[in-house]
Amino acid sequence: MDILKEISENLELGDFEKVSLLTKKAIEEKIPVEKILKFGLIGGMDIVGEKYKTHQIFLPDVLMSARAMHAGMDVLKPFFIREGMPNSGKVILGTIQGDLHDIGKNLVGIMLKGAGFEVIDLGTDVSPEKFIETAKKEAAYIIGMSALLTTTMPMMRKVVELLKKEGLEDKVKTIIGGAPVSKDFAQSIGADAYGYDSTDAVESVRKLFNQA
């Protein structure tokens, strides 16, 4: 069987040890690393994402596949040291100031990485200034913010306002999510997108990049 297909299939099964071994084997077979990444790993995660969206598999399956994806990426990383891992775009991600919830934000990060984006995770309790400072430093196009409490949601508005104040609203786009957050709220604070869950987040981020 085509080794890239084999990588993708084992990734679907969540067999991280096999994915790691097969990625090494593919390198030995002189398959270009970009191709292994694009068709073996990201290709596999795309299928997983689609199956999850159509309820053929469940969250734990997706997360086992994501672990396998990371195992493959770890093998590829040394080959990209000079020019950095190719990616579909950079996303700064974090839980907004005052909030320490991180599971939802982590899941979004995992799925974005699985879709080939570079994710810079600032963790929890992230101030608006820190989001913007990092976006500027990293020349990232997207800031993703998570909030699980109504009391911390207003901080998201501050990020959008600060971006405008600095004249960065065309250079940096914002996407928000979290249990109490809604599409209406996103619109009301002028955020560029809202993601209901981690697969929706990937779609929305892709859309933002496509509109860029």
């Binding site: 997360l63 086992m64 994501a66 672990r67 195992a71 982590n106």
Partner: peptide
């Protein structure tokens, strides 16, 4: 423990 599991890429166990 949950944070540790996420750090070591054991996302499914961490999330469960």
């Amino acid at each position: 423990k949950i944070r540790e599991l996420f750090k070591t890429n054991d996302f499914a166990l961490g999330c469960m």
